[in-house]
Design a protein around this nucleic acid. Structure first.
Length: 372
DNA sequence: CACGCGTGGCC
DNA sequence: TGGCCAAGCGT
């Protein structure tokens, strides 16, 4: 992919800087300094941790350990209390180790290049670039969750961002954006501006495109696909459950059960539900039709947090009197089903029975298949 | 390289 | 309300 000569690329960095100076954040505790120690400490604390959580920890830590030498001389047991509650405690152990390494090998200073900084414990490519950009003005790109949102949307980069190919494209694009910018670019404002855009405008759920300075050239805004980007990770396999349901028909009516709220399908009407075949048998005997139920084609319904395998059975028993409905049950006329509040899979089952589109008779099967 | 690491916020 | 996510990194 060649983005280098597009207007979208060449105008990006200056637009971000201009916006950051007017609308970005300028009063966070770690801003307004070029001290690599303070910048480093903030970057480590901010890894996978929200700004509001970090602020208090940052100020307490900095009061106790004001510079690299103080931190390097401390015992790890004296450091950890200042991290307790912040999470990801390897960050604190690496921070301490890193300070000692800087004291031993670098005269309590940070190395001059992001490549060298990234060799230190707990500092990866993105954190190293951020430290170098804020402390030295080095033109090296960062890549965090904010930048991923901004760039996937702005450039229309599809693919799960944690996958290698997408990750590489994002890094290459981010570096190209820096290199396409004029030499006078304010790297600190640009780096901060990308993160400010990501946290203030280009948020995940409802991006505030109206206030975004990049919308004129933004792929997602132009094509209306903000909700599709960044490409969401495939969800973990959800637990699966199974149940059987019974369609009991008497003349022109079927038996439905009102679902309680709160609960699955609360307030809707569903079919009587059973856990196993013996309960189906018992129900049929109860209706005076032992062994008369027919197994229908199974289907799979996917909820947000689990999957339900439904095995419907059909029982014709015209001897029943429709006045005999249990608590929470009702005999509903088939002609009234279209106006009845039914969950989608229940409507599908009943549609297949009573409104077969392309076959003369409802279809029964011995081998239920998940056709959901 | 997919995963574990911690806690809080969000819907 | 449980799952997903947040200024990532190390293994």
């Amino acid at each position: 992919m060649s983005l280098n000569k597009t207007p979208a690329l060449s105008s990006l960095a200056c637009t971000v800087v201009y916006w950051q100076k007017q609308h970005g954040r300028h009063h966070l505790p770690w801003q307004g300094t070029q001290d690599p120690y303070r910048i480093w400490l903030s970057e480590i604390m901010l890894q996978q941790t929200q700004v509001a959580t970090v602020i208090g920890y940052y100020e307490r830590f900095l009061s106790r350990f004001p510079d690299i030498a103080t931190l390097a001389q401390a015992q790890q047991e004296d450091v950890m209390p200042y991290w307790a509650g912040l999470g990801y405690y390897a960050r604190a152990r690496n921070l301490h180790r890193c300070a000692q390494e800087l004291a031993t090998n670098w005269d309590c200073r940070f190395p001059p290049t992001p490549e060298q900084i990234a060799t230190l414990p707990g500092i990866g490519r993105s954190t190293a670039a951020a430290i170098a950009a804020f402390a030295y003005g080095t033109r090296s790109a960062i890549m965090d969750g904010n930048v991923k949102r901004v760039f996937t949307r702005y450039f229309g980069i599809y693919g799960v961002t944690s996958q290698r190919e997408t990750e590489k494209l994002l890094w290459d694009t981010a570096q190209s954006a820096v290199e396409a910018a004029p030499a006078s670019l304010d790297m600190a404002a640009y780096t901060q501006g990308l993160m400010d855009l990501g946290s203030q405008c280009c948020i995940r759920g409802r991006p505030d495109c109206a206030r975004c300075p990049l919308k004129a050239n933004c792929y997602a805004y132009i094509h209306g696909v903000q909700q599709q980007l960044p490409t969401p990770k495939p969800r973990k396999a959800s637990p699966e459950r199974a149940c059987k349901m019974l369609v009991v028909r008497s003349h022109d009516r079927i038996l439905l059960e009102k679902q309680v709220s709160p609960g699955i399908w609360g307030g809707l009407w569903s079919l009587p539900r059973y856990d196993d075949a013996s309960e189906i048998d018992a129900a049929c005997r109860n209706f005076g039709q032992a062994g008369a139920a027919q197994k229908m084609a199974g289907l799979l319904h996917v909820f947000s947090h689990f999957k339900l395998h439904i095995e419907p059975w059909y029982l014709q028993c015209d001897t029943l009197r429709v006045t005999e409905a249990g608590q929470g049950q009702a005999w509903i006329a088939i002609e009234d089903l279209p106006s009845t509040a039914l969950p989608a899979p229940i409507r599908k089952i009943l549609d297949g029975l009573f409104n077969p589109h392309d076959r003369a008779l409802p279809e029964f099967t011995d081998a239920p298949a998940d056709t959901g």
